[in-house]
């Protein structure tokens, strides 16, 4: 089962420069674990003890996975997952 995962510039050091990689799993959590088995360290940049890191956006097709249950969101063959670092900041 193949799910395309699009990797942002800042995380391509984990994928040997690749803009997109393939992975498998039944949920976002399993997919990230699968990716980490080949791209060690990637999981740590996406997930912490609380779940998805607050300033990382993960999208399943056209939806933010936060609206789909976060790490437990189901994924299937043919889906596209996009990772984008949130653009954020501020005076404080």
């Amino acid at each position: 089962m193949a799910i395309e995962v699009r990797i942002p510039t800042i995380l391509r050091s984990f994928t040997g420069g690749a803009k997109s990689v393939e992975g498998s799993g039944a949920t976002i959590e399993e997919l990230i674990a699968d990716l980490d088995s080949r791209h060690s360290g990637l999981r740590d940049r996406l997930v912490d003890e609380q779940g998805l890191r607050r300033f990382v956006n993960v999208y399943l097709n056209d939806e933010d996975v936060r609206f789909l249950g976060g790490l437990t969101a189901p994924v299937s063959d043919g889906d596209t997952v996009t990772v984008l670092p949130a653009v954020a900041g501020g005076a404080r």
């Binding site: 056209d62 949130a86 900041g89 501020g90 005076a91």
Partner: peptide
């Protein structure tokens, strides 16, 4: 121009779906 999803005087964050569309 992007939407500041935080609508705050001390913080900003791009709206996540708008960011996906623009990216």
């Amino acid at each position: 121009a992007m939407t500041n999803a935080e609508r705050s005087p001390t913080f900003y964050r791009f709206d996540s779906l708008e960011q996906l569309a623009v990216w």
